[in-house]
Amino acid sequence: MTGTVDDVREPAAVALVLVSHSRELAAGAAELAGQMAPGVLIVAAGGMADGGLGTDYEHIEQAIERAASDGRSVVVLTDLGSAVLTTEAVLEAVAPELAQRVRLADAPFVEGGVAAAVTAHGGAGLDEVAASAEHAAASFGPGASAAVGAPEVAPGEATDDGVVRASRTLLNPLGLHARPAAVVARMLAGYDATVAVNGVNAASVLELMKLGATQGAQLQIEASGTQAREAVAALTDAIDAGFGEI
């Protein structure tokens, strides 16, 4: 074996395979995505057996089989042309039982990988993980929605419309970067509540990161759902604690 198939920690129901022409690019993207989703098996399939640039059929096939072992489903992300073509060739040749558990996402490699990893970590199924990867381009693009502030209300207070609102100041010196964004998204996955921070979906790491909130930024929180109050309380506590970074 080539030694470039590197898995990261213990598995969720959906695993990822990252196929790149470059061993380093695949490994780096796997590391980046894995940082935000420690429970997701992420298999890097980058480069040729000799370490050169290119895509290797057997290498990709092995990565997919490994990711799909123990009954997991698999979302595959690819970089340029031949990564797509070779993956398609593999999926055409493997057993139908395996092929039907694998989705090749038409998604940006890095952003899609991060989105898919976080979504898989939240316990989502195959279609949802693939969709999150494919929507990653839109949520990262320059045209992505601007943050909309809500009127400031006392923390945790439900208004007439049933929405629980709170406002907090971000204390983290580095702002709402990948790690705290992932903490928020993971934490909120445990509540039956739909939570928005500055108008974006707080369950989406990408949306949160896209806010570009820096230290001192005001975070307007709005939540609805049966556990809205609990979700807002947990979130405001975490913000006040600087997500454990201060």
């Binding site: 022409h21 040729m48 050169g52 290797d56 059929y57």
Partner: peptide, 18 residues
């Protein structure tokens, strides 16, 4: 076919391979 798919590396691998 099978050899080219695993050794060419570029798009020509899966194209010629297929």
């Amino acid at each position: 076919a099978t050899t080219l798919m695993s050794t060419v590396g570029g798009a020509a691998g899966p194209l010629y391979g297929t």
